[in-house]
Amino acid sequence: MDHIAEDVRLDNYLRLQFPSRSENESLARVAVASFVAALDPTMEELTELKTAVSEAVTNAIIHGYQEGDGEVTVECALFEHTVRVVIEDHGVGIPDIEMAKQPMYTSRPELERSGMGMTIMETFVDSLEIVSEVGEGTRVTLVKTFRTAPDVM
């Protein structure tokens, strides 16, 4: 399931807001991992989600705010076996999303960025949506369904 139907019941949610400082990258992914623990994901699924969140938050900090001051928000919501994580910044925005998605492309080679962040996000979640406006900011939506064993009746 890649998209969440409007009529699916929202089970739980979490909203984080923090300054765009690199030490908050681990805080964000650990918070999201704790939040989804209720869905009993496998270690592999959890690692995939944490990695995707880490990529999106890092992008907000080093690309969105160019390592300057700003605020990043992370919103998580659970819908049955699915989690949706929205990472948002009000930074510079992405002029060309298709180019940014190209494997090995980076706008900051001087920072030794590998250019693999978007590819990793696309691979590790079921759905990746990026909405960006130059000068306004970027919103990244990650959706992942955990293939938990069916409940015992």
Binding site: R29, T51, S54, S114
Partner: peptide, 13 residues
């Protein structure tokens, strides 16, 4: 315990 694309950049650098 954990690595993201930043680690890839570290290795390639």
């Amino acid at each position: 315990d954990f690595m993201d694309s930043s680690g890839l950049g570290l290795i390639l650098g």
